[in-house]
Design a protein around this nucleic acid. Structure first.
Lengths: 261, 261
DNA sequence: CGGACTATTGATAACAGTCAACAGTGGTGG
DNA sequence: CCACCACTGTTGACTGTTATCAATAGTCCG
């Protein structure tokens, strides 16, 4: 992992991790304190491999800023992106002592990451803080849910539906950490990366994007995307926003529409 | 869950679960004892829903015999099979107290299952037995690996490659629990189920199977499959057998080909 | 021996891939 | 400041894989 370790003036802080985990389960002051004490901020160049497939050792970190992807290659060079990692997400988190990486993780943009080891030790230790453990487990469930969505997209949706579905997922996930507003979000992916995520050719991705623009559903410029009719996009993609607040059984901080009668 | 609970003459025992977990990490007598004491054997009819998507409560069980699948439906009826569950696999295992199911699990054949709660309590408790916890975590990693394989198949492989890849995966997983020999294994899936797993039409699955037969790579009769040239199938599918024994860092019971020099 | 499901085959159509050329963009160095 | 280069995006023409439709045959089960 080519990275420069420097503690001077962190570009941003672990606040985005707090924001992410709090959107999943309410955190007490002890857990928030633990998160805000995380250190060893690192920057990584675009293109660098954070985790290498089958590597016996790799770091547990949180992504603070920038985008990364989990990737697999076939022998002949075909590439499949398994999923995107966004700010607030974990990288290489695994409770098992010496896991083998199941996929390569690469930086798609310049990144800032922070050490997640203290969190993993707390959660895997003898007396794990209940709130933090709940948040981390829900985060892990959301990772699985994203993977299941990816399977459905690739297996049973048309190119047009896949594109809408992916855009909605990115929008919702970025919203969760406060990086999207007015249906607009940063979009650093090239069409080639999108094509490798959606199992399509670059040319076809380009045509689908043209179509969405013509239909007034999407405004996509360099580095920025706007979803112009989210309701229609949801219909097209058969997409539903995940509601992790409903994945907890105990009462949470966010009021729910269905209150007990 | 429509199921009949009966303790009289279990059709088979939890031995298959022991076999599965021991293939992942060596188990001590205490853990083996715990597994062999599992009870509440249940049978389920083919077609019954063991876990329903978004259900707030669902059982933690091990599959003893028969095949099941995790499934998602789109609004218009398209169906995607996310993965198959084979004897020895867990159903609905989740350490979180009240998780929402991320997908529906259906029985594809008549099933026998056994209660996994004692294992989940032991592993999630204050002093988890190290061997059992390791095996369960490796099992969970293998589940994720299968999901990643499914993404690669659907996203970047041709119909022909997908079919070979799936057949090899089923063969290896059944071998792990002693249900395959001489490159032959039970194959209860209809072509429609295969098509919903591989994201293809039934008609196309049929044609691909014909091709594999013509080429002398596959012998597929009712309920039984033989892989006639595993090496060539591996080349076609770019498939590599997962080696969970290498996923542990501490020395295991199975000798490895690469002994320390 | 009917009925439901599953497998098989042919003909045709649609979706998506490939090839190729060109345009825009941003960075670098002369 | 401009020329150059690499990368990304765009478009057209053509090809190919896979889906759809439809009809028939086989299999299992009651």
């Amino acid at each position: 992992m080519t990275a420069s370790s420097h503690r001077a003036q962190p570009p941003v802080s672990a606040a985005v991790v707090c924001r992410r985990l709090e959107s999943l389960a309410p955190l007490g002051p002890a857990s928030l304190g633990l998160l805000l004490c995380l250190d060893d901020l690192q920057t990584h160049e675009a293109g660098c491999e954070l985790v290498s497939e089958r590597a016996p050792h790799f770091p547990s970190r949180f992504l603070i800023s920038g985008w990364a992807a989990r990737v697999r290659w076939l022998a002949d060079g075909r590439r499949q992106i398994l999923g995107f990692l966004l700010p607030g997400d974990g990288i290489g988190l695994c409770l098992r002592p010496h896991p083998l990486a199941l996929a390569t993780t690469v930086a798609l943009t310049p990144l800032v990451t922070i050490d997640a080891e203290p969190v993993m030790r707390a959660v895997g230790g003898p007396a794990p803080p209940e709130d933090l453990a709940a948040a981390m487990q829900i985060a892990s469930s959301m990772d699985e849910a994203a993977l299941l969505n990816q399977v459905v997209r690739l297996g049973r949706q048309t190119a047009y539906e896949r594109m809408c579905h992916l855009l909605l997922e990115l929008y919702d996930r970025l919203s969760d950490v406060g990086l999207a507003e007015d249906q607009t979000f940063p979009m650093p992916l090239t069409q080639e990366l999108v094509s490798d995520a959606l199992g399509l050719s670059v040319v076809h991705v380009n045509r689908i994007l043209q179509q969405l623009r013509r239909e007034g559903l999407l405004d996509l410029r360099t580095g920025r995307a706007s979803l112009l009719d989210i309701e229609q996009l949801r219909d097209i993609a058969d997409y539903e926003r995940p509601q992790p607040s409903r994945w907890r059984s105990f009462p949470g901080s966010q009021p729910m529409s269905e209150a007990p009668a």
